[in-house]
């Protein structure tokens, strides 16, 4: 859906998406890294379980909700990636304890 422009010379940052290593770039938001990864990053909604991907990328739509380092319902478009970050694609509601 998206690819990186060749001019992007930012250093790589390794994150894990559902346990799989993904190469992101320093300064990417979690959502941008997921959309660039080519992986299936679709979450499912709490109401009907419908699949969704980020819609606005600016913090207003909440379709980028994702579990980051064990904490659910984070807005992936507002959080920068960090080395070793563990991302889980959130299916449905946030779970208790996450």
């Amino acid at each position: 859906m998206f690819r990186r422009s060749e001019q992007d010379e930012r250093p790589q940052v390794q994150i894990f998406v559902d346990g799989v290593a993904v190469a992101a770039r320093q300064g990417d938001t979690v959502s941008a890294a997921l959309l660039a990864s080519g992986q299936d990053a679709r979450r499912s909604t709490a109401v009907s379980g419908a699949p969704r991907l980020p819609y606005c990328m600016m913090g207003v739509c909440f379709d980028c909700l994702v579990t980051i380092d064990g904490v659910g319902n984070r807005q992936g478009c507002l959080v920068p990636v960090a080395e070793g970050m563990q991302i889980e694609i959130q299916k449905g509601k946030r779970e208790i304890g996450k």
């Binding site: 998206f2 690819r3 990186r4 992007d8 938001t29 941008a32 959309l35 660039a36 991907l53 990328m57």
Partner: peptide
């Protein structure tokens, strides 16, 4: 609400902050 439908602003945000461009 389908995955793959986004705002133009969302694409521009990715373009500016991560040099990402539409591919498909």
């Amino acid at each position: 609400t389908l995955p793959g439908v986004m705002t133009a602003g969302a694409a521009q945000t990715m373009l500016k902050s991560s040099a990402l461009v539409p591919d498909g």
